[in-house]
Design a protein around this nucleic acid. Structure first.
Lengths: 251, 251
DNA sequence: TCGACTTTGTGCATGCGTTCACAAGCGGTA
DNA sequence: TACCGCTTGTGAACGCATGCACAAAGTCGA
């Protein structure tokens, strides 16, 4: 209702000024890793582990220990020298920094194969992201519940998103529809979009877009396959010097 | 056929030594963007566009023009100064560099919601990635075709992957099964893996893994929501310096 | 209480990727 | 043919992220 994000934001954690400053300084890459640490830590917590060292945690998360410590230092100093980190403490601080103390309701647009998969994900791994709205153009789908949530028609995006306070929109439509859907989400006040359509979305500056592009991922892998094959097939190492260091290699 | 990658690699484009050297020097980030350029260019090609300038192309791809030119320079100099690039020429060179001249057959493991979606993707947007094998543990699924391909039991991974020369494995299983599936794929000779399971996979050095982690993506978005809300709610800018002792905090 | 050992937090250096700015090169035109 | 304007290709500067190495700080045992 009237709880547009305008003012007090008192509903959630206090978020002290110092943290806010810190949050702004966290490198994007570190944020992504924090999310991974959080998952690993949650798993440990479930198994009754209460303390962990940077070495253990880094190994479980598949990163360098120094990098992990630096990442954690971005959110504050919550470790104990000589001992390590308290799992619960770390979990709660990472959750706070990542904004997981709020409830982010999610809308999925495009109930095709992928949309179904997303709708059934059921809040996504771990708590925190309830899917509260589904949309599609197809009239045959409208009204039918998927994963417990009824599908609305795409024309209702604005109304429904505002009503249910959707903060994250997921686009799983065919490419041609993506930009139009994106525009509607934006006009409904959605400021974060996760885009699965292979399209470069145009959005205002105040909207954050992340894209998941399967074709691109496959092609990157393809590149590596090709590189590997070339290395193997081509003269194993007879790249007889020249080049290597500097990109430049002119004929 | 004896077309294992052992020797001449005569089946596909010649790939001259100079290109091989160049390919090795292409930054990972640039490879990802090349894939995007390729899609944009393909779209232009379909619409009958034959030439394009770096400015136009960069705008369509959502990147900086200088960056685009540098990215293209990694694969060679195929533009014409004062004119721009020939769309077809660029398409074919990017395809070659990305290794899309070969056929990469794909195996999807885990035919749940996501697996269904992937199987039905039908070769993925654009040509080049035929899904040739599906696997699941569930005996009820085995034998039933999904997207035209019959599902095999997970125990058959090695045999089937070798037989169908699978070069890319996609893991869409629940988290606990992911590592075991990964190991099987690796032992079947699969050197590239796209992992949708929220798990950090352990693989030998010669295997390339890319992961798509929805939870992480959502959490990154959540972080930005939180940051935005804080900026809006918190005294608009009264971050009156003195941000902790810490580093950074620029005026 | 003291000392030895362990692990964090971080200044610093290194390397990679992005951005800038401009010379080189090409087509069109007189 | 010679000039002019446009666009590419790239050297160089910059900035961010990674990794190293060590001092600071805490625990544990004697």
């Amino acid at each position: 209702m009237a709880s547009r994000r305008g003012e007090g934001e008192t509903a959630t954690t206090p978020l002290e000024p110092a943290d806010r400053e810190r949050a702004r300084a966290i490198p994007e890459a570190a944020v992504a890793r924090l999310a991974v640490y959080l998952r690993v830590l949650s798993g440990m917590s479930d198994q009754g582990v209460t303390a962990v060292s940077s070495e253990e945690l880094s190994q479980a998360a598949g990163v360098n220990a120094a990098k992990l410590r630096k990442d954690l230092s971005y959110i504050g100093s919550y470790g104990t020298r000589g001992v390590g980190y308290d799992v619960e403490v770390l979990v709660s601080h990472i959750e706070r920094i990542l904004g997981l103390t709020r409830n982010h309701s999610v809308a999925v647009v495009g109930i095709g194969n992928l949309g179904h998969a997303l709708a059934n994900y059921g809040g996504f791994p771990g708590r925190g992201f309830p899917v509260t709205a589904l949309f599609d153009v197809d009239a045959d789908l409208v009204g039918i519940p998927v994963g417990g949530i009824p599908v609305n028609h795409i024309d209702e995006i604005t109304a429904v998103c505002l009503e249910r306070e959707v903060s994250i929109g997921v686009i799983a439509t065919p490419p041609p529809a993506a930009q139009s859907v994106c525009d509607r989400l934006v006009s409904a006040g959605v400021q974060c979009i996760l885009n699965f359509a292979p399209v470069v979305l145009q959005v205002p500056d105040n909207v954050e877009v992340r894209k998941v592009d399967l074709a691109v991922e496959m092609q990157i892998l393809s590149f590596h396959v090709a590189r590997r094959a070339d290395e193997a097939a081509g003269v194993s190492d007879a790249n007889n010097g020249l080049g290597v260091d500097g990109m430049v290699i002119r004929p």
